[in-house]
Design a protein around this nucleic acid. Structure first.
Lengths: 134, 134, 134, 134
DNA sequence: GTGGTCTAGACCACC
DNA sequence: GTGGTCTAGACCACG
């Protein structure tokens, strides 16, 4: 379900947190569904439980999950997570447009590339859904 | 000319390197123009010369500048810098579209936002140019 | 494992980086094998950790190793390192032949010397392997 | 006659010294021929006279030229210069073969490349001689 | 424990 | 004056 990329410059806990919140935003993890226990996920990924713990802490801080002592962690309101992600994307987009504009990229070039990329994203999604039918 | 944001997660030397390469890509720093000396920029920004040195090292490695012992550092081929920046922007855009698509953002929403942001960028540029006429 | 030559004109960090990448190209350090920690190597060589750090930075930039915060540094794709080194050798060879030709060295003299040197290199390698059998 | 490459990492005085000794080894500057005066060469190359002075000092130290107070500098025994250059080339070749051997280059590959490069060098020389007939 | 960043201050080669 | 290297020692984030 989750793949850790040791070569990725981002810390492992961040990779886990992002991947999990992605799954929530995409609806794979439904609202109020239980997340795997810290120890279970740590074992599965062969990493230190502290690292998983920190990922969960991060997610809780962001309001993506809520933890109940002795019972575990659960997915918070999915729509809220989605909104957060959307907001983050638009924030990063603003920075990217600024950089692109400074580098002389025109709006037409930019939107053209966006069109291609969205097309690719839809294709990929289609293929993955097809595979998931197995 | 350069502002360091201590709250920025990125290291100072990276902020400096990016800001300088931006100025080159925008043509503010012309080809073969001398950059401020390591010590001068360090004094101006109230930081350690080693940090500026590292920023220059980074830029030299990327081929944005060339440094000559005893003479100073100079802007390399501007067009090449521009191309590098464009490429980097499109690379980051690909990741961003993937994230946006996963978060349920449609192509229309995305390009709509791009349009607004480009408009803002052009406005900002216009104002800055106006100011520089003083 | 690594010997620093203080009389060498090249900086220490460069000597370390080259020696390490040599070990990788020769297969002594296998892919994904951990390198000695920055502090450990610094202590072993009786130099400042910053200098080792810079050597590792150099290697990472060249794509020879990848470093993970809190875990250590590891050998990247060995074949790629080998290819880089081959390419660099052939590049330097081109400059050397130009110089030799200008100095009146004939192709026969040149290849004759190359033959002797390769013979020596093979001998040295043989001896080293013999020693490592102890 | 001499072109300074500001982007070259080597100091300017070294570039000048090498270029001049090249011209001597190739016989363009004959034995006991006068070199341009320090001031003249400095003016011609638009550089600091100190730099030219240092280049001449270097050449004198290597025994490539001899200076007579009040009269100028003159080319020393050409054959000796040639020998020095040959020696230097063979020394560098030894290091290069070691590096190449470590990178897995075979003697056949190496000499094959040498053959190609010598062929190219002869071609280039031929063309230049043709041009110099003007 | 690890690597990454930064400061402070020194020395060198070059121009 | 310039850039380049090195040391010493500190702090941070990560596992």
């Amino acid at each position: 379900m989750i793949l850790i990329n040791q070569r990725d410059r981002r810390p492992i806990y961040e990779q886990i947190a992002e991947k999990l919140s992605d799954l929530m935003a995409q609806g794979v993890l439904k609202q109020d569904a239980p997340l795997p226990s810290v120890r279970a996920l740590a074992t599965e990924l062969s990493i230190n439980p502290n690292t998983v713990q920190r990922a969960y802490l991060e997610l809780e801080r962001e309001g993506c999950i809520y933890s109940v002592k002795g019972r575990g962690s659960f997915v918070a309101a999915v729509q809220q997570i989605r909104d957060k992600k959307r907001e983050a994307v638009f924030l990063d987009l603003a920075a990217l447009v600024t950089r692109g504009h400074a580098a002389g990229i025109t709006e037409e070039e930019f939107t053209g590339q966006v069109h291609i990329l969205f097309h690719t994203a839809r294709q990929t999604e289609y293929i993955e859904k097809g595979v998931s039918h197995d």
